[in-house]
Design a protein around this nucleic acid. Structure first.
Length: 105
DNA sequence: GGAATGACGATAA
DNA sequence: ATTATCGCCATTC
């Protein structure tokens, strides 16, 4: 009941979904909130900020293709390593049209 | 109870 | 392409 239960359960759903994102693919905060059907992009962001350390957090990007604020270098390093479709002269942004992933069924 | 906050998103300039 | 604003929505002060 306490506020923590609901929040904790919500966090579990978010993390479970993030773990399902295949290597080389990404999901946006908004899409994750949409799939879960609860909360919004900011809520997902809050969960990732707090509990995202144990999941492939770099596979979660902003709808603009922007990488995780404060961890852009590390995220980019991982994406290059797993072959995520990138764009731009310096390959520093995600190619959302090619990398976006949505859970089947 | 109201204001501030935040790993967002869409739009305007 | 970049910055500035405003809307969203649950949590925290």
């Amino acid at each position: 009941m306490g506020r923590s239960d609901a929040a904790e359960e919500y966090a579990e759903e978010v993390l479970a979904l993030v773990e399902r994102i295949p290597p080389g693919r990404v999901m946006t905060y908004g899409a994750i909130a949409d799939v879960i059907g609860r909360g919004g992009p900011r809520q997902v962001g809050a969960v990732m900020s707090r509990y995202g350390g144990g999941v492939p957090w770099h596979r979660v990007v902003a709808a603009s293709g922007r990488l995780v604020p404060g961890h852009e270098v590390e995220a980019l390093r991982r994406h290059r390593a797993e072959g995520t479709p990138l764009r731009g002269p310096d390959r520093d942004r995600i190619d959302l049209t090619a990398a976006f992933w949505y859970p089947p069924e």
